[in-house]
Design a protein around this nucleic acid. Sequence first.
DNA 1: GCAAATTAATGATTTATTCAAG
DNA 2: CTTGAATAAATCATTAATTTGC
Lengths: 102, 102
Amino acid sequence: MENEGNAGTASSSRWNPTKDQITLLENLYKQGIRTPSADQIQHITGRLRAYGHIEGKNVFYWFQNHKARQRQKQKQERIAYFNRLLHKTSRFFHPPPCSNGT
Amino acid sequence: MENEGNAGTASSSRWNPTKDQITLLENLYKQGIRTPSADQIQHITGRLRAYGHIEGKNVFYWFQNHKARQRQKQKQERIAYFNRLLHKTSRFFHPPPCSNGT
DNA sequence: GCAAATTAATGATTTATTCAAG
DNA sequence: CTTGAATAAATCATTAATTTGC
């Protein structure tokens, strides 16, 4: 169901980004933009408007959400990684017998 | 990342706080503690020791570092804020007047 | 194939922190 | 000590994916 965002149809209660819009936003994010300043938001919004109706606050929200959720994802990945590591470690790592002689 | 600090494994040269330890420390920080006195440090260290090996100096360093880093963070936010004000092009949206949405 | 029902994503709001200015 | 300003965390709400029964 490839919705074109509400670019043309324009009857939705919330902004629904186009694939092109998402692509551009993700590229900016990859380039290091995380909390764009007001003028950056204006500029980005202007570029995204070529693909459909959009407001500055949508860009603002997108970066907020994307940053937060990327962080959540990374956190989960780190937890899973360490859990795996710990489980394996229990097989490899035998505590040295503390050779207290006899 | 469920590292147990070096609570049990004790194979690291530097203190690595447990999640529980961090939680307790951050709660103390939220309660207003910034530069704990020697007595406070001793008390806190005693409570943290329940989760693993720790010394008073670790607590001391933690508060110093945490305070400094929170300041750095706020400073960066402050700079972003000034940039925003200077350009003043913002007005993405009106601050939501505490409208209740349930 | 197709909708109704259900689940997953994600846009939008609200809440709780922070430092520091007044 | 109180308040201003800006989030980031937590939550709410709506949309898209998908599953399911026919």
